[in-house]
C-alpha cells in the first residue's frame, strides 16, 4: 500500500513515547503499533483527529502517499 504513516518521525520530533501517545489518544499500544508498522488497513477520522490533536500536526504530516514502483499493486488483497 503506498500510504505511509509517519508516526515514528512525529513521535521522535515531539520526544513522545508510543505508550504516552496511546494514553493520551485512548488507543491501545497494540493498535498504535499496527499503525506505526504500516499494517493498518484503515484509520478512523476520530483516531486521526485525536492523533493530530496530541501530536499538534495536520493529517498530511501523519499520512503521506508514496507511490511504489510501476506494476506494484496499490492495495493488498484480504485473505479469504
Amino acid at each position: 500500500m503506498p500510504i505511509r504513516i509517519r508516526l515514528d518521525r512525529l513521535l521522535l520530533e515531539r520526544r513522545m513515547s508510543l505508550t504516552e501517545l496511546a494514553d493520551r489518544v485512548g488507543v491501545t499500544i497494540a493498535n498504535l503499533s499496527i499503525l506505526k508498522t504500516g499494517k493498518a488497513r484503515a484509520i478512523r477520522f476520530s483516531t486521526l483527529a485525536s492523533l493530530c490533536r496530541e501530536l499538534e500536526c495536520q493529517p498530511g504530516d501523519l499520512v503521506v502517499f508514496e507511490p511504489g514502483p510501476p506494476g506494484e499493486p496499490e492495495e493488498d488483497g484480504l485473505e479469504e
Binding site: 499496527i34 499503525l35 493498518a40 488497513r41 484503515a42 484509520i43 483516531t47 484480504l78 485473505e79 479469504e80
Partner: peptide, 15 residues
C-alpha cells in the same frame, strides 16, 4: 459469511 469475514478482517485492522 465470506463477505462478513472480509469486513471483519478489515475492521480488525482499522485503527
Amino acid at each position: 459469511f465470506r463477505e462478513g469475514a472480509r469486513l471483519r478482517g478489515e475492521a480488525e485492522l482499522t485503527i
